[in-house]
Computed example of a mutant assay.
Amino acid sequence: MLSSTEAAWMVSYELMGGPLADASVWRGALLWAIALYVPLSAPLSTLESSLEESDLPESVRQPVLVISSLLLAIVTGVVTQLGFSWVLGPGWASSLGVVAVGWSVLIVLANAGKDD
């Protein structure tokens, strides 16, 4: 039997609906954020160079760069996961995210071999 606190928590959780309430969407979004981090590094390098040219102190520049890169990766991951979830379904979209992570690792390793 549930206590009144647990029952109230479950009722409040049931009020939270929509696609973002599904845990598989967040797992897939994390996978997509990891997979798309390498292609997103180009805009982040532009931001980093502009921050270096600005007159902000180093103690402010580094947190701005870290927070912006995390937000960009997570937002891109959520949008990609929601798009693929709408087309393929949440399970398939997450599985495709795993494949995309594998491809990203493969591309990074292939490019590292070319640099030698």
Rank of each mutant, 00 (worst) to 15 (best):
M1L: 11
L2Q: 11
S3H: 08
S3D: 12
S4Q: 14
T5A: 13
T5L: 15
E6H: 07
E6D: 10
E6M: 12
A7M: 09
A8R: 11
W9M: 14
W9I: 10
V11G: 03
V11F: 04
V11N: 10
P19F: 09
A21S: 13
A23R: 06
A23Q: 03
V25R: 01
V25H: 10
V25K: 02
V25M: 15
R27W: 15
L30Q: 02
L30E: 02
L31N: 04
Y37G: 10
V38F: 10
V38Q: 06
P39Q: 04
A42Q: 04
P43I: 04
L44Y: 01
T46G: 13
T46L: 15
T46C: 07
E48C: 00
S49R: 10
S50G: 01
L51W: 00
L51F: 03
E53V: 05
S54Y: 06
V60P: 08
V60A: 12
V60E: 11
V60F: 11
Q62M: 11
S68P: 01
L70Y: 10
L70W: 10
L71Q: 05
L71H: 02
A73N: 13
T76E: 03
Q81D: 09
L82C: 04
G83Q: 00
S85G: 10
G89M: 09
G89F: 08
G91F: 03
W92A: 14
A93V: 12
A93F: 05
S94I: 00
S95H: 02
G97Q: 07
A100C: 13
G102E: 15
G102D: 09
G102M: 10
W103G: 09
S104A: 14
S104L: 05
L106M: 12
V108H: 15
L109G: 13
N111F: 12
A112H: 02
A112Y: 02
A112N: 04
K114W: 12
D115F: 07
